[in-house]
Nucleic acid binder design. Sequence first.
DNA 1: AAGTGGTCTAGACCACTCG
DNA 2: GAGTGGTCTAGACCACTTG
Lengths: 252, 252
Amino acid sequence: MGFEVLDRQSVVPLYFQIQQHLLEQIRSGSLKAGDPVPSEQEISARLRVSRMTARQALKSLCNLGLVYSQRGKGTFVSGRKLEKDFRQLLSFSEEMHQRGSQPRSKVLTFEPVLAPAEVAAALHLEPNEQIVRLRRVRLADSISVCIETTHVPEKLFPDLLKSFEPTQSLYEEMAQRYGIRVAYADEVAEASAATPAEAKLLRIRHKAPVFRFTRTAFSVDGRAIEFVKSVYRGDRCKVVSRLTRQVKIGGR
Amino acid sequence: MGFEVLDRQSVVPLYFQIQQHLLEQIRSGSLKAGDPVPSEQEISARLRVSRMTARQALKSLCNLGLVYSQRGKGTFVSGRKLEKDFRQLLSFSEEMHQRGSQPRSKVLTFEPVLAPAEVAAALHLEPNEQIVRLRRVRLADSISVCIETTHVPEKLFPDLLKSFEPTQSLYEEMAQRYGIRVAYADEVAEASAATPAEAKLLRIRHKAPVFRFTRTAFSVDGRAIEFVKSVYRGDRCKVVSRLTRQVKIGGR
DNA sequence: AAGTGGTCTAGACCACTCG
DNA sequence: GAGTGGTCTAGACCACTTG
């Protein structure tokens, strides 16, 4: 733990600078799984910050799951790997970039429609409200990977049809042009078999194994902003999750 | 926000008492999605605690995803439901109980074996180290739902073969008798088709859609303690996840 | 201007773990 | 007994939002 780490003039909070510094040590391997992290008092003394600030840095690492604390013993690097970001909410484009693949899209349709019942229910709209529907075949390195049908409410994204270039990233457009940021999504995955039409688009056998996903995305304030149905080739797609065992909240 | 909420003699931390009180208001519906939660200063003044303590209570609710804060505006109840705990790490027994179904198990084999390469790699063991393998057909309300093969290292759970009743919950046994608690698990799901043997055990058609899961469970200190392979009927199983969009950690 | 959350300080007492 | 994390206090300054 160096002494020259902190820039007190910076707008970056002190606790965050400390957090980043420790993060770097974990990433680089200077701190390995099981190693003790500098204690709150040590950070406090060495970097001349209050103990609460040191604590906040450690707490944030703890929340990220990178370290864990034991009362009376200390704080230690946990066994989890940094490399894998499990089950983040990523758009298709982002996911492909992260894997180092080149994403491409073939647009099937991009049009205004009246919300079918299932979509209206998921997005909390009145039946037959106006939505924009975008159907795309998604490719990774020129191989068809999935068929994706996205639905967004027209009223949240007016003029999307005119302004959006449907081969681009929708999440970026939402953030840049409309200031609406996706915070989380609920997703349901099913194991199924390809229909003839799907098989043709994905260039796989009829009845080959596929994943069917339905995903509803929400903004921080809990508004439903996107509903997606997608079909992924079973042989080119695995769903990786990290499950955590939590304390019960609010239960009796 | 009442005044009689806090018990200052209690061993329960003040921030936790405050958190529980707010939680109750959200659960009961007194505070609805979008409603502002009492501000830090209000809690601080009304309950005569320091602002940092009030803040800690709100922070913990924030980490649970039940409220969100906006600088300069306030803290608000988020749109998420309390009812659904998405994608917790649950054992089969726990999952069925939560759904209100009756779990049952048919034990196929329960025996010591030498770890095959795949299992040894997942559990970080030497090849051919001693493990205990348990193969079960799992039933919900008397319908076969999945075939599950569990592997645990013998050295972590000595005498498991003698003491454990294999129709019971393994996670409970681990916690009760060995003091080893599962903290999280990494899981990979694939969409596939049933083999003839699997089809027979699950009473489904040959080549019917199934999920294949492999799961490695870890304790808090990052030790791998369990490796499970399972096959679920595709028509009786959906994988529900909540995905969150996080800040990048440790990236460039 | 008033109210909000975000950060920070310099102390304090406690329960716990370990040698 | 020395060191650890868990909790708590009573202040402070800041940036941000809203009327």
